[in-house]
Amino acid sequence: MTVNAEWLEIDGERVVQGLQAARETLDTAQGDVVLNFSSVRRIDPNALRAMEKLAGLADGKAVKVVLRGVNVDIYKVLKLVKLTSRFSFLA
């Protein structure tokens, strides 16, 4: 159940920046942080590193990060680098 969730739109062209903003949100988040990946078609190594960093930070702050609208190609990338277990996913 998502309560008081922070919603953030991730721009497909500026994924790293979007994730940077998400990291900042973690400091003030009251509940879950939901990142909308619907417009992201592909991620690159920098974005992956940013996601790993975000996951680490979220773990430290006990904040649940929910990824929404992740396409299956990106989901497979996250699976390969073992990041799927560190996020929640919402269709």
């Binding site: 592909r42 690159d44 992956l48 190609d73 996250l78 680098v81």
Partner: peptide
Amino acid sequence: SQAGTAAAVFTQ
């Protein structure tokens, strides 16, 4: 790790 990340991204 670097190679793994690249390989994962490459799948797209």
